[in-house]
Write a protein that binds this DNA or RNA. Structure first.
Lengths: 120, 120
DNA sequence: TCTAACCTTGACACTAATGTCAGAGTCCAG
DNA sequence: CTGGACTCTGACATTAGTGTCAAGGTTAGA
């Protein structure tokens, strides 16, 4: 599919799709006319990227962790570089803390809303 | 306490503390010499701010939700503005989705690490 | 008293993620 | 075959969060 359709289906502006491609988050074939040609599967990938971005995970990190997610059959398990493994472990723990923090504060908001609605 | 001590105790550079003050996330008295004078309680507040920022919550939102968290006895429950309540509800749901997304991807990383360590 | 360490404000720079616009090529539909 | 819709690249603008530096005031200690 072309970039317009992908944009429409994912909600990501075409500008961002080019940006993601430029930064190696997604790849696209090129039609003879130079237009990007995305495979169907890219839709989910873009949704995942958007989710991670929205969750505050920066592009650099997403690029690192994307290969570990989805389509595991595509992965070679290419003698995992120990440095990268360390980064992944750190990232995992970081995301744990991040989630905890978000949930803690969400609960605080929820509690506040409870109190207010109870008062009303 | 002065800004240097606060910076040291929170890990936030003094530059950022001024930034937070400028954006209304924290407040400080002023000593006669013009130096900021922070109360003890600000330490936790700054830690909370840092946590939220690290979790990808922008300053604007933090400013909105901070009054709802901590020290509830300080809050007047000032006829909660319905528009703000709506924003808070949206923020709560947003944070739920955010946490889910982060956890989902963290689990994917964890699973990957499991596989690799199992293979090793 | 002088120096070092602290504080002040203000300015400039940078990165990440986006928006937007310009100029040019492509393609379909009338 | 022409106009409108789509695509391409590239450049510039913007916002948030930070880093850093300059020029100056304050203060504590040798």
């Amino acid at each position: 599919m072309r970039i317009g359709e992908l944009a429409e289906r994912t909600g990501a502006p075409a500008r961002m799709l080019r940006y993601y491609e430029q930064h190696g988050l997604i790849t696209a074939e090129r039609s003879p006319n130079g237009y990007r040609d995305f495979p169907e599967a890219i839709v989910d990938r873009v949704r995942q990227i958007r989710g991670l971005l929205d969750a505050g995970v920066p592009v650099k990190i997403i690029k690192q962790i994307l290969p570990c997610l989805g389509s595991p059959e595509e992965i070679y398990f290419p003698v995992p570089d120990p440095e990268m493994l360390a980064q992944l472990e750190e990232q995992r723990d970081r995301m744990t803390r991040k989630a905890e923090c978000v949930l803690r504060n969400r609960d605080a908001i929820a509690a506040y809303l409870e109190r207010v609605s109870g008062t009303a």
